[in-house]
């Protein structure tokens, strides 16, 4: 898998911490591998919206990658509940269901961006940089290939 210039937190130069929410273990592992190539760290995983909320409270990640279609509580509702409590939360919806209505609903309820599956690493990387904004810096890690 392609290696990207690492995106670090501007405030302390530490890796960006991610919470990966998807009911598919396979999808979570795939996203985890991409996050590694971005120089990030998977702080935690959740398989449904309810667990995502409790894991967000526990981990306070820099970014949440959130699927939409999940059991118990869907991703858009979970995103809304997280953002109500934590307006600073950076949530990127990652779903195969990418019609306009869904995207608009997600953005209106607090998500910062939307990436359609199958996820292209270069697309997700650009979205991460955009969503981190000034709180993130892309810099070569010592010894890491670009």
């Amino acid at each position: 898998m392609e290696q990207f210039v690492a995106v670090k937190r501007s405030k302390d130069g530490q890796p960006v911490r991610y919470l990966v929410v998807d009911d598919s273990v396979f999808a979570r592992k795939n996203l985890g591998r991409m996050i590694e190539t971005f120089g990030g760290q998977v702080a935690g995983e959740a398989g449904d919206g309810v667990t995502a909320i409790t894991e967000y409270e526990r981990l306070k990640p820099d970014i949440v990658l959130m699927d939409i279609t999940m059991p118990q509580m869907e991703g858009i509702e979970a995103a809304e509940k997280i953002v109500q409590q934590h307006p600073e939360a950076r949530i990127v919806m990652v779903s195969s269901v990418g019609y306009q209505e869904n995207i608009v609903a997600a953005l209106q309820r607090g998500a910062r961006h939307f990436v359609q599956k199958p996820v292209k690493p270069e697309v997700l990387y650009e979205v991460i940089k955009y969503v981190m904004g000034e709180d993130g810096t892309a810099a070569h890690a010592a010894g890491a290939g670009a």
């Binding site: 273990v25 396979f26 999808a27 195969s96 990418g98 019609y99 359609q116 599956k117």
Partner: peptide
């Protein structure tokens, strides 16, 4: 997991 995720992606894109 593979088969489920494949189904999810194909059907999600078609439904989109």
């Amino acid at each position: 997991e593979t088969v489920c995720e494949l189904a999810n992606q194909v059907i999600g894109n078609a439904v989109t």
